Computed example of a mutant assay.
Amino acid sequence: MVSTATSELPNAGEGLDAVSAANHIEASGLSKSFGAFKALEDINFTIKNQEFVSVLGPSGCGKSTLLRIMAGLIPYETGTASIKGEKVLSPRPDIGVVFQTNNMLPWLTVRGNVELGARIRNMPAAARDTAVDKILEVLSLTKFADAHPHQLSGGMRQRASIGQALVLDPPVLLMDEPFGALDALTRDKLNVELLRIWQEHRKTVMLITHSIAEAVFLSDRVLVMADRPGKIIDEVLIDLPRPRNAATTRAMPKFGEYVTYLGRVMGVAN
């Protein structure tokens, strides 16, 4: 793994406090094959407690495979994958996962979908109602609690999917291109919404994306993958002040510098 903040760009200056220093997500020498096809090779990285890290790379480079391994959804051949120091062998209750396509059940209301995981986990009714009410408010979905998925916009359905992951208050959130299927305007709005949620609740987040601007806007660090087989070729610390907002952060010259640099690393800019 190449671990650089690049000589052209400054390292992040503030760092995390002592409580936040522990690694929540870690991969060491991780490899994965599907038959004769090697999807991932020698993946090494760490994500600290409460850190927001994006994994950026072209389509087909193994980003989603990597996330599914960290979520315990698929096995791997060599190396190790761990969450909070424990080897990942299967799905865990302290991990929330959000996929690109929302998994809302069409016959349930927004509230019914958001609370489904809590019901399956047998959360007491009073605690469940409180948690769901809070999440609906955070996601600006309170007025749509009794609506069904077909009555919602794509962005609202995706917010509800995030709510499904958040309602159990997991310390770790894995997100697999959650906004990839949305139009650019809705995607930008949900980037802002996701950043607001993270700034308020400070989950440890691993976000899979192919959007350079999205990765820079949201992240503390960006890991860059190359494909065939997928491997991490660069690591960039994003030294942009927090809290961030769309208007001021994206207007900063440094934001453009990060986007340009990452574009060159990915081969999409000269």
Rank of each mutant, 00 (worst) to 15 (best):
Leu9Trp: 11
Arg202Leu: 12
Leu166His: 10
Thr4Gly: 03
Leu174Gly: 06
Ala5Trp: 04
Leu139Ser: 08
Leu190Arg: 00
Val2Pro: 09
Val172Tyr: 13
Met225His: 08
Val132Gly: 04
Leu152Val: 11
Leu67Ile: 11
Lys87Gly: 13
Phe37Lys: 14
His148Lys: 15
Leu190Lys: 04
Phe179Trp: 06
Glu235Phe: 02
Lys189Ala: 14
Leu190Ala: 04
Asp169Gln: 15
Asn113Thr: 02
Arg244His: 10
Leu56Gln: 02
Leu168Thr: 13
Ala27Glu: 01
Ala127Tyr: 00
Thr249Val: 08
Leu108Met: 15
Thr109Ser: 08
Val55Leu: 14
Gln151His: 12
Ser54Pro: 06
Gly57Ile: 05
Val53Thr: 03
Gly57His: 01
Ser90Leu: 14
Thr65Pro: 00
Gly29Ser: 10
Ser54Phe: 01
Ala213Thr: 15
Asn102Gly: 00
Asn122Val: 04
Gly154Lys: 06
Gly96Glu: 10
Ser31Asp: 02
Lys143Phe: 00
Ile212Glu: 01
Ala12Gln: 03
Leu9Arg: 10
Ser20Glu: 13
Glu177Pro: 10
Ile162Met: 08
Pro93Cys: 12
Met1Gln: 12
Lys189Trp: 13
Leu223Asn: 05
Ala246Cys: 15
Ile212Asp: 06
Pro170Lys: 01
Glu77Ser: 12
Val132Arg: 01
Ala184Glu: 15
Gly15Leu: 15
Met252Phe: 05
Met156Ile: 11
Pro106Leu: 12
Asp42Thr: 10
Ala36Val: 07
Thr4Val: 14
Ala5Phe: 06
Gly263Ser: 12
Leu30Asp: 00
Lys231Ser: 05
Thr80Ile: 03
Lys143Ile: 01
Leu136Val: 13
Ala125Gly: 01
Gly263Asp: 10
Leu116Arg: 11
Leu105Asp: 06
Val53Cys: 02
Ser33Asn: 07
Glu115Arg: 02
Gln100His: 12
Asp176Thr: 03
Val114Glu: 05
Glu177Thr: 06
Pro58Cys: 12
Ser153Cys: 04
Arg159Met: 09
Leu136Asn: 04
Gln158Tyr: 11
Lys231Arg: 15
Asn113Arg: 07
Ile135Tyr: 00
Ile69Cys: 05
Gly154Phe: 01
Leu116Gln: 08
His148Glu: 11
Ile233Asp: 11
Gly256Thr: 11
Gly35Arg: 08
Thr248Ile: 01
Ser28Gln: 13
His150Pro: 06
